[in-house]
């Protein structure tokens, strides 16, 4: 087996909740609590889950935009978990990010050329003309005109901005791109353009994606494998076809059932999950899903299920399934 572009083991991120003038820590939010996964070159692993499940935090931890509380991060085989900023720098170029908000992720005071050229300036000591040529090529690759490099970020539409963000992420030819809800803010017609672009780039350059999304439709389209997260933990991980055809975890089932299907003939009475998503500050005991689970038994309330392999490439954390 080829070496994964990224592997994390037992990844944890706890945020202290501080109150009062003395900033005493009164509680801990366990945003990510023991996540293990690996992504092969050219593969798309999708992280799905609802708000507060920790999926975005996993992405930021992998890029070391945050310091993990525990666990290990291996980028192309190198343990980068505790590297300082300077030691981390050479590794950064191999893993880049595409952000959700096409507005906030581009500095409105810079031109497209400066935005896309910044990573090149940092790593490849490229002269002005060479850099301009590279930026022009990148812009054209993502479907913008080369002359667009002189325009300011705020002069572009949402979809074009997302293309700019992709060009910036591509600049250093990374092996991994973390796409954090990269198409969620876009209208469907533009979303289709961006999804096609991402898939073309993967085919062309063998980029691996950690594709973070709440939208199962998008995930089913772009993903190779799917990891479903709930309150900081992966509850099920399997190849796409398995997840959608034969989900094992009751939460995966409920997520799939809840997504509205754009076909009026498919309207059926279906399981609607009751209750709210609990807070990650006081996660439920035992299996974290037991408060909303339609099949929970006494054991689920006390004993946390481990993520265990049930078939080749299919892992699930449930006492009752399969």
């Amino acid at each position: 087996m080829t070496e994964p572009v990224v592997a994390v083991q037992g990844l944890q991120k706890y945020f202290p909740v501080q109150r009062g003038i003395l900033r005493r820590t009164v509680a801990t939010v366990r945003a990510v609590d023991g996540v293990t996964l690996a992504i092969a070159p050219g593969e798309t692993l999708c992280l799905v889950g609802e708000s507060g499940c920790g999926k975005s935090t996993v992405g930021r931890l992998i890029l070391r935009l945050m310091q993990p509380t525990g666990g290990r991060i291996l980028l192309r085989g190198t343990d980068v978990t505790t590297l300082g900023e300077a030691a981390m720098r050479p590794h950064r170029r191999h893993a880049q990010m595409v952000f959700q908000d096409p507005y906030a992720s581009l500095n409105p005071r810079l031109t497209a050329g400066m935005i896309v050229g910044e990573p090149l300036e940092n790593y490849d000591d490229m002269a002005g003309a060479d850099r301009r040529a590279k930026v022009a090529a990148l812009l054209e690759r993502v479907g913008l005109r080369a002359e667009a490099m002189h325009k300011y970020a705020f002069e572009f539409s949402g979809g074009q901005r997302q293309r700019l963000g992709i060009a910036r992420a591509l600049a250093l030819d990374p092996g991994l791109i973390v796409a954090d809800e990269a198409v969620s803010a876009l209208d469907v017609s533009v979303q289709a353009q961006v999804l096609n672009l991402l898939m073309d780039l993967q085919e062309e350059r063998g980029i691996a994606y950690l594709f973070i999304s709440h939208d199962l439709g998008v995930v089913e389209h772009i993903g190779h494998r799917i990891a479903v997260m709930y309150l900081g933990q992966i509850v099920e991980l399997a190849p796409k076809a398995t997840i959608f055809a034969a989900p094992l975890h009751p939460y995966t089932e409920a997520l799939i059932a809840a997504a509205p299907i754009p076909d009026p003939r498919a309207r059926t009475e279906r399981i609607v999950l009751e209750g709210d998503i609990p807070s990650a500050m006081n996660p439920p005991s035992g299996c974290r899903f037991h408060t909303r689970c339609p099949i929970a038994v006494a054991r689920c309330r006390t004993e946390a299920p481990l993520l265990r392999q049930v078939a080749a490439g299919h892992a699930v954390a449930c006492h009752l399934r399969p």
Partner: peptide
């Protein structure tokens, strides 16, 4: 806290450059 600062960090920009440019 803006995402474009995170983008600059992951693009390898150092602290001083981020402060001055962004």
């Amino acid at each position: 806290e803006m995402p474009y600062i995170e983008a600059a960090v992951s693009g390898g920009s150092r602290g001083r450059k981020i402060v001055i440019r962004h």
